[in-house]
Amino acid sequence: MTSAAPGNHLSPNLPPAALVELVGAVLAQDLPAIVRAGDPVLRRPAQDFDGQLDDAVLGNLISTMRRVMHEAPGVGLAAPQIGIPLRIAVLEDQGVQDPEVAAARARTPLPFTVIINPRYEAADGSVASFYEGCLSVPGYQAVVERPASITATYTRPDGVTVTEGFEGWPARIVQHETDHLNGQLYLDRAVLRSLSADQEHPRWAQPTVDDARRGLGF
């Protein structure tokens, strides 16, 4: 299964000069705000990065995205989430201390990673279902079934394109952020009957979603 992008309501790519101006305006803020669901930038496939920004500006953008991700806090952030329609995302997860949760969710640490122009495909037929949340959709979480193992191809900030395998929770993070770059939110893939407000989610926060399946009927 490859990541797919919706084909409706597309807007033309910004000219390079306009894109540079937009990035400059965002980076001029001390800590850019996270764009929330309902903003069109989250529903349009982002533009490929092909050198529109020089190395210094790209480095500043990546550093800023990392700070925004940490401040939120979150384990991934895509450029459209701060209003920039470029196919760039940052990822980082320290993992969890609870060994039962870590094992059930295959949640191994993911070192800081920048993915530019990513694409992915399932590495095998295995799937996993867990609750996900999103910094652009605050207040709720829902179960999403995703491939448990993927092969992703992306470009690093140094311009080198790599193909890398991801499994477990790191694979989920890569898929979630790549979906953002394709104009998709996790709710597009979610089992909506599982949707839980943050205040209610603790009752379903077990290592697996088995109790939520029984309690919410999905």
Rank of each mutant, 00 (worst) to 15 (best):
Q199M: 13
D48V: 07
P99H: 01
P157W: 12
I84L: 06
E100W: 07
N182Q: 12
Q29G: 04
D30G: 15
E200L: 11
R172M: 05
L22D: 03
A18M: 07
R172K: 08
R146M: 02
Q206L: 12
N60K: 15
T155Y: 08
A128G: 08
R87K: 15
I116G: 02
A103T: 05
G76T: 05
G38W: 03
T208E: 06
P170M: 04
P109Y: 03
A123V: 04
A104D: 04
D93Q: 02
A148C: 08
S126W: 05
P118Y: 10
P6T: 08
V96F: 04
Y120V: 02
G159Y: 10
I34Y: 01
E21A: 15
P147L: 07
R203C: 06
P202N: 13
P80H: 05
S11M: 10
P147S: 13
Q199T: 14
V20Q: 15
L185F: 04
L192A: 15
A142K: 05
D54G: 09
G133P: 04
V191Y: 09
L14H: 08
V143E: 01
I150L: 11
Q29T: 14
S194H: 07
P16V: 09
V114H: 08
H9E: 12
E145I: 11
P207F: 03
A28M: 00
L192K: 14
N182L: 11
Q81F: 01
E21V: 02
I116S: 11
W169I: 02
Q199E: 14
P32I: 10
N13A: 15
P109R: 10
E21P: 02
S149Q: 12
A5V: 02
D50K: 15
T108K: 11
A142M: 04
L77R: 03
A46N: 01
V209L: 06
V101K: 06
A197I: 02
D48K: 14
V90I: 12
T64M: 08
F112H: 10
V101S: 12
R213N: 05
I62H: 05
